[in-house]
Design a protein around this nucleic acid. Sequence first.
RNA 1: GGUGCCAUCGUCUAGUGGUUAGGACAACGGGUUUUCAUCCCGUAAACGGGAGUUCAAUUCUCCCUGGCACUACCA
Length: 525
Amino acid sequence: MVRTRFAPSPTGYLHVGGLRTALYCYLFAKKNKGNFLLRIEDTDQERFVEGAVENLIKTLSWIRLDHDEGPLLDGSEKGEFGPYTQSKRTEIYKKHADELIEKGHAYRCFCTKERLEEMHNAQEKNKLPPMYDRTCAKLPQSKIEEKLASNTPFVIRQKMPYELIKFKDLVRGNVQFDGKIIDDQVLIKSDGFPTYHLANVVDDHSMQITHVIRGEEWLPSTPKHIALYKAFGWEHPEFAHLPLLLNSDKSKLSKRQGDVSVESYIEKGYLKEAIINFAAFLGWNPGSGEEKEIFTLEELEEVFSIEHIHKAGAIFNIEKLDWFNWRWQKEIFNKKIFPLAKEIDEKVEIDLSRKDQPKFAFTSSDKEEKFIEEKGKILLEICKKYLDKKYLSDKNISKMLVTVEEKILRDAKEVSSQIDFYFTLPNYSKELLTNEKMGVDFSWAKKSIEEAQKNLEKLDNWNIPEIKDVLTKIVERLECKNGQVFWPLRAALSGLDFSPGVFEIMYTLGKEKSLQRIKKALEKL
RNA sequence: GGUGCCAUCGUCUAGUGGUUAGGACAACGGGUUUUCAUCCCGUAAACGGGAGUUCAAUUCUCCCUGGCACUACCA
């Protein structure tokens, strides 16, 4: 059975690159009806961050990448393989390291940091690769016992075989390294903890991992791992090294150049479906001829394959994430409003001729009213996290949101930040009242706003159809385009270059407030 | 410096020994629209360079260049 694992070290939050690795591990396991495991690589005591493990598991779980075996958040165990937390397994690693010493594949090294540093400096000076010179490998047994007896601190080093190490990477094909120029890696640190290399190999073996899927930064240490497997007499798992996720300057993705923590994207309001969908397509695609881009996690489990993983690194492009998020927002929104419309009016007719823009024909205006109200609530829910609490109690807000439905699905944050115009008219410059493209200059703006003012003052029934009627008639009388009347008016009412529709604004503001704002605009002109 | 990996539009990518090198995001233009957006239509945009193999190379080989990763008692 296929068994993969995600093995983060708890030095902070889960970042986007880690998420992608976890996702591919998960997808590969699921695709092959195997298990996806989680292992905590906390062998570095200095970098350990309190709460990071819990956070990692929580985020992974939120994004729906739950592991099949191993520890749960509450500390209880799942499955037969015990807690995969490396700091709790130091004895096991030590035993394995001793085994390697016995077999002659490792040795104790008593060299001080100072000596190593001197050596490295000298090597660098002579333009040689900085490598341990194996002084301690040649130590006679009596000397070793002497050092041990005097409690001299030591590390255990791997004795790299001086041979060509070849392996087949599932993504990159045949790869080979010369063992002669690979340093004798430290296996056990002087504090007794193992390094990544030892712990990783021992654990992958004991967890019966069949496929090691990890970032490309690990490719150069794979020969060390393969030598270790060989030294233990174990078969090594298959390796698949994933292309790196890059900053826009093509360096390895880092937090220096923007947000990389998955949590921060969650906080910003990105949907988990969008994050997964986006991450999946960073370095992978479903293959030939496939133009579908929106995939659920379940669909990805079906179509995922290692063969279609790209070799080159991929730049993390936030604009594409935004697009995925919009598509998913739309998907989820539609899933809610179709049944809603049917529930309110079982005879409702839905016109789907405009792609992604369904139109609903209700049998009565009451039912339509009800639908708009309910839809407004859904939209308000989407905007909720960005809106000030004072807005949430105002019924009219959700009504206005309905008129900017598309924009909300696309960018709820932006819309939410602008909604304040309803309460306080922004301080806008008089240029806003004009629009070159539509042929609205200052004098025209003045003319049409005055015209609107005159006619609206006489209007008694302040509702959307009546308001619309009044304004449409003005357009007819002035023999101009709709926009030439509506643009300056809408600008006057909202003080924004983007806002809900002009009728809806007027209606929700009410007659008095609307006319006030119109008057204010005329004062500017 | 050494070792390794990689190289198709600005970005994510498809693709093949013979293609008008395809799609998506972004950009731009036009149309619909009460603005923006949505929607529809369209434009621009790529095989890093040089040899070789071949009738034919973006595709195969080699070299160069470039980018990146690794080169810790970090993972």
